[in-house]
């Protein structure tokens, strides 16, 4: 009878095929990642030898950290990791401030043209980055920047090979503005009015009342900004030649120069994947919710 009232809850033997299916699928999604983790501890020779059996997924044989030592000999891995952490963190922080401020003004304040601007911002969502990445390389190569050379300010041309070229283009994000806007709409407007009556400024309302109430939206925007920044590949490939400024994904290229060591490739891949994987496992609910909330824009 339980099956009739709750169709999703089977009992006993009837559940076996369903559980088996789930397990097979889990193996299907997990096996490349497990293979990567395990192989990162094995010498190349053994990786190839183990391919034909279950041993490919087991930490058996000559297990060591040799590949990881090899990684550090081959590339400035720590430098790449630091660069990616700095670039992602600064973009996330600036993105939260810039996009939430815009969303606040668009959703809670009255001024001419705000509807039009919101529509225009949302319309840009349909333009994939790839369609203008190439002209943008040309464009950032021409952009000026003010620099202090010790005694006075000088204007320099070109943003290639800098941190800012990896950060500033990705700070303002139409989708983040949209997400904040949606969230702010759900907070009662009476809060603003009461605070304004008490003499608060509009910026004060934003900073002291609305933002402290918007934790979930901040988390979502942080995750949705962080993932693509950590994973960014196309853009730094084109605008950063200086080894000291390169992010983790570009480090991959170094492993295909001279003698290729798959063990080292797996070790480096593990090093740049595990931090994100750990964050995901720690904040699973927030991750899944943020992806799910990206579906609300239908």
């Amino acid at each position: 009878m339980a099956t009739a009232s709750n169709p999703t809850r089977g009992t006993g033997l009837r559940r076996v095929p369903g559980v088996l299916l789930r397990i097979v699928l889990a193996l299907f999604f997990a096996f490349p990642i497990v293979f990567m983790l395990i192989s990162s501890f094995k010498p190349d020779q053994q990786i190839f030898k183990d391919l034909g059996s279950i041993r490919a997924f087991l930490p058996v044989g000559h297990v060591s950290l040799a590949n990881y030592r090899g990684v550090f000999d081959r590339v400035p891995a720590m430098r790449f990791l630091m660069n990616s952490i700095v670039i992602s963190a600064v973009t996330v922080a600036l993105g939260i401030v810039v996009n939430s401020m815009a969303a606040f003004a668009l959703s809670r304040m009255r001024w001419p043209g705000r509807r039009l601007l919101l529509t225009l911002i949302i319309a840009t969502l349909i333009v994939p980055f790839e369609t203008f990445a190439l002209p943008m390389v040309w464009w950032v190569n021409k952009l000026p920047w003010l620099q202090f050379d010790g005694s006075h300010l000088v204007i320099t041309e070109g943003w290639l090979d800098t941190y800012r070229v990896q950060i500033l283009p990705f700070v303002a994000n139409a989708f983040s503005v949209f997400l904040f806007h949606q969230y702010f709409q759900s907070i009662p407007k009476e809060l603003d009015e009461a605070a304004l009556m008490d003499g608060a400024s509009w910026f004060g309302v934003y900073r002291r009342i609305i933002m402290p109430l918007s934790g979930p939206a901040v988390a979502t925007v942080a995750i949705l900004t962080f993932l693509p920044m950590w994973n960014s590949y196309l853009w730094p490939l084109m605008v950063v030649q200086d080894e000291h400024l390169r992010p983790v994904m570009i480090g991959i290229q170094y492993f295909f120069q001279l003698n290729v060591s798959w063990g080292q490739i797996m070790a480096y891949s593990t090093m740049i994947t595990v931090p994100v994987l750990a964050l995901f496992l720690a904040f699973q609910r927030a991750f899944i919710n943020s992806i799910a909330s990206s579906g609300v824009k239908g």
Partner: peptide
């Protein structure tokens, strides 16, 4: 099932 999504496409492609 979600783990590949948080793994970067560069790493996935390499593996």
């Amino acid at each position: 099932y979600f783990v590949p999504v948080v793994t970067s496409m560069v790493v996935v492609s390499l593996v």
